[in-house]
């Protein structure tokens, strides 16, 4: 009995990986063949990108601010308060900016995508789409993937800047650093490797945010109750995957001696 359950569990997970990979390959491939749904992609950029702007900016600003506050106490012990700009800039650009932006966007959009597609599935709109001659992957998944791939790196850049701005506010008001001192050190601290790392991560995270939402939406079962379940699972899985991928990608960059 246990063996049967274990076998079914493992097969289910392997199948999920296979289906997710299939979803990724097909949605990427569809961008290079007709028909393309450019209007849908622009609409999704507005929904996912512009729609997430406020929460991303606020998250970035206050994360940078609290990072400066916490670090200030430690640095002041060693008389190195001047390094605040450097610490905030490196932390935001390398890790906190990309990861927190992705987590916020996942919380808002993976759930939204899963619930929207899940609702369409249970109300037979996906079947109707296929019956009317449309490939749902091409119409629903590809626009969401490319919209997230374009907007998430841009949101990350804005979050990074807002984080440094938050750090600047705390540094000048609490640590009494001059604005010029803070920004000069922050700017000088950032190397190409830091920016490369911080700007390549969002592409991986974008794939997770968009496709995890689409995957759970397309695998919704059990009516409206199932939509709720898919939504919750999409957010949880997307957030965990973002953190796991972040760890392994960072480890990969370190192992390859990139930085």
């Amino acid at each position: 009995m246990f063996q049967v359950l274990f076998e079914r569990f493992v097969k289910g997970k392997v199948l999920a990986v296979q289906e997710f990979t299939d979803l990724l390959i097909n949605s990427v491939r569809h961008a290079f063949t007709r028909p393309r749904y450019l209007v849908d992609t622009l609409v999704q950029m507005d929904v996912i990108g512009f729609g997430s702007l406020a929460i991303v900016l606020l998250t970035g600003f206050f994360t940078g601010g609290v990072l400066a506050l916490q670090t200030y106490r430690t640095l002041s012990t060693f008389g190195e308060v001047g390094l605040l700009g450097q610490v905030v800039a490196l932390s935001m650009v390398r890790e906190l900016g990309p990861v927190l932006t992705a987590l916020m966007v996942a919380g808002r959009n993976s759930s939204g995508i899963a619930s929207e597609i899940g609702s369409m599935l249970v109300s037979e709109q996906i079947d109707a789409m296929r019956a009317l001659g449309t490939d749902p992957l091409r119409k629903l998944v590809t626009p969401r993937l490319y919209a997230t791939l374009v907007t998430l790196p841009l949101l990350t850049i804005l979050a990074d800047f807002c984080g440094m701005l938050g750090g600047a506010v705390v540094s000048t008001s609490t640590a009494h650093l001059s604005s010029a001192e803070y920004w000069t050190l922050a700017y000088q601290a950032l190397q190409f490797e830091d920016c490369f790392q911080g700007l390549t991560k969002p592409f991986f995270f974008a794939i997770i945010v968009a496709l995890v939402g689409c995957y759970f939406g397309l695998h919704t079962t059990g009516g409206t109750e199932g939509v709720g379940r898919s939504t919750t699972r999409a957010v949880v899985v997307a957030c965990v995957l973002i953190l796991v991928v972040d760890f392994f990608y960072t480890k990969f960059l370190i192992a390859t001696g990139f930085f």
Partner: peptide
Amino acid sequence: RMGIVFQEGALFD
């Protein structure tokens, strides 16, 4: 060559 009317209509919301 076929048309279908789904149970609840399945109109795109």
